[in-house]
């Protein structure tokens, strides 16, 4: 555990809590892509199956459980409790365009051809692209509430901090996880355009982020 890794995990947790509380307190999921949230729930489910096979640390187990519970609770809020506010019209990204290639890649490129390893690889690849329905929705409607942009900022920051963690681990332990690093770089690149808009419009402006 190093400072980048810890900061990354905290950033990830903050992002998920921000989104959950936003929906819970406003009793509305307007502007939130339910599809992205289902994909994230799928990411955690397929990655954390090792909860049943290995014990790493109390920190590891607790964080995994928190991520799982919060991701399913968020999906529940969007599709059940506050489904009246769900904007299915604008959440029109075709997720099969992500799921099919990601599944195929996970079978082709993995550390071992075993169910758990393939599912782990699937989760890493899927996480890299899971935010696309949300970004697509913002592009389509042309705006995002500032609280939604804070969520996206912390979610993007988390993987960027993991990149720093991997650089650190490579130099201190010689640790290099090719699948995670390549996917992590791709994932972070998807947020770069958003980071720019976040700094120039949300932080300097305040209020909604609207696209030209």
């Amino acid at each position: 555990m190093n400072i980048f890794r810890l900061a990354g995990d905290v950033s990830h947790l903050v992002a998920i809590i921000i989104l959950f509380l936003k929906i819970w307190k406003s009793k509305s999921c307007a502007g939130i892509s339910g599809k992205s949230q289902v994909l994230f729930a799928l990411v955690f489910t397929s990655r954390y199956l090792d909860l049943f096979t290995v014990f790493i640390s109390a920190y590891n187990t607790i964080m995994k459980l928190v991520f799982l519970v919060l991701s399913y609770a968020t999906v529940y809020l969007i599709y059940m409790r506050f489904r009246g506010s769900y904007d299915s019209e604008n959440d029109s990204f075709r997720v099969e365009f992500l799921l099919v290639p990601v599944t195929g890649l996970a079978f082709l490129e993995n550390y071992a051809f075993t169910p758990l390893e393939i599912l782990w690889t699937f989760s890493i690849f899927l996480e890299a692209v899971a935010i696309m329905p949300q970004l697509f929705m913002i592009t389509k409607t042309g705006e995002a509430e500032s609280i939604t942009t804070h969520y996206l900022f912390f979610l993007g920051l988390y993987r960027a901090l993991y990149l720093a963690n991997w650089v650190w681990r490579y130099h201190t332990e010689g640790f290099f996880d090719q699948i995670a690093v390549v996917s992590g770089v791709v994932q972070t690149i998807f947020y770069c355009d958003f980071f720019y808009l976040y700094v120039t419009r949300v932080l300097r402006g305040s209020g909604k982020m609207s696209l030209p």
Binding site: H12, D50, V54, I56, M63, A112, W120, F175, A180
Partner: peptide
């Protein structure tokens, strides 16, 4: 090995 080691990350 790398297969086991990456599992300590979230």
């Amino acid at each position: 090995t790398s297969q086991i080691k990456h599992k300590d990350e979230l």
